[in-house]
């Protein structure tokens, strides 16, 4: 078993009090936590810091650790024969030469905790997966890697059709084993939707921009639009101004009668350059029409 210097890891003297240990841990956790640190190797450093703190914060574990004496980090060590009995961890001899110091101390703590305690719920695991909108709509199978204490495990998870952004899946009882009659833990899979080049997601509803030519917007039109279930012909009502939302009921995400809607948001597009004939026609329309799209603007100003 290799010795680890938990005091050095937390950068505190061996006689540091509980408050100093807590402060040191919080400072280092803030520095190395994977959620906030961009330093390379931060995650491993955070694990080391957490392991050290888990021992030094607990007076019984700290006393047991201190009784091992101070050594060089990485030095091979074997606890004294009476160490296990002194700290209620009789039978620690079962830990082989390649055992981990943290496992030994955790076993000691678990043995203490087991005396007079009730059922203990098994450990839960949280996994994240990003899936495409199409997979969310049709359902898919995911292969996820789970790091269990006894080694990595590959999970095949069936994602049902119709999941939405932020949806959670639970694999009940597939987490860590419960103790003393406690239920086994669960695995939670947190689903995120990958950005889609066309659709924007609002819960179960989807929206996309529908570019229309000025005459299509003014006169109405039948236009072909894409949906997750294939293309459809959509009726654009005459007089569709920019920003109008045209709803295709039940063409959003979800399944059965809980399906969301698909919204086509009208944007009016014009040709970048006009042919002479187009210019002539637009000029004739401009001269003929009495439509003033800025009438509201002028009323507000006056």
């Amino acid at each position: 078993m290799k010795y680890k210097d938990y005091y050095a890891t937390l950068e505190v003297p061996r006689d540091a009090d509980a408050d100093a240990i807590k402060k040191a841990y919080r400072r280092l956790a803030r520095k190395y936590h994977p959620d906030v640190s961009t330093e390379s190797g931060a995650e491993n450093r955070f694990k080391e810091v957490t392991e050290a703190y888990e021992t030094l914060r607990d007076p019984e574990k700290r006393a047991a650790y201190d009784a091992l004496g101070q050594r060089r980090p990485g030095e091979e060590m074997h606890p004294q024969p009476d160490w296990g009995e002194q700290f209620g961890a009789g039978g620690f001899e079962g830990f082989g030469g390649d055992a981990d110091l943290a496992d030994l101390l955790a076993a000691l703590a678990a043995r203490h905790a087991g005396q007079g305690r009730g059922p203990q719920h098994g450990r839960d695991y949280d996994l994240s997966a990003a899936i495409s909108l199409e997979d969310a709509h049709r359902g898919t199978h995911l292969q996820l890697q789970l790091q269990r204490p006894d080694g990595p495990q590959t999970l095949q998870v069936t994602v049902p059709a119709g999941v939405t952004q932020g949806q959670k899946l639970r694999l009940r009882g597939q987490g860590g084993k419960g103790a003393r009659g406690g239920a086994d833990g669960d695995i939670y899979v947190h689903l995120e939707l990958l950005p889609h080049p066309r659709y924007r997601v609002q819960g179960k509803d989807l929206s996309f921009d529908l570019p229309l030519a000025p005459w299509e917007a003014a006169l109405g039109a039948e236009v072909r639009v894409p949906t997750l279930d294939g293309d459809v012909m959509m009726t654009v009502p005459p007089g569709s101004h920019s920003g109008r939302k045209l709803r295709l009921r039940g063409r959003g995400l979800g399944s059965g009668n809980k399906r969301g809607d698909l919204y086509a948001i009208v944007t009016i597009d014009v040709p970048g350059t006009l042919t002479p004939r187009e210019k002539e026609l637009f000029t004739a329309l401009a001269n003929e029409s009495r439509f003033d799209p800025r009438s509201n603007l002028e009323e507000k100003q006056s």
């Binding site: 999970l155 069936t158 994602v159 949806q167 959670k168 639970r170 694999l171 009940r172 899979v189």
Partner: peptide, 22 residues
């Protein structure tokens, strides 16, 4: 490993206290 999944909707319906705690 293959396992049946429960679909947890992030909705507003109130849960039992034990399920909420779990």
């Amino acid at each position: 490993m293959t396992s049946a999944v429960e679909h947890l909707e992030a909705g507003d319906e109130v849960l039992r206290a034990d399920e909420f705690a779990r």
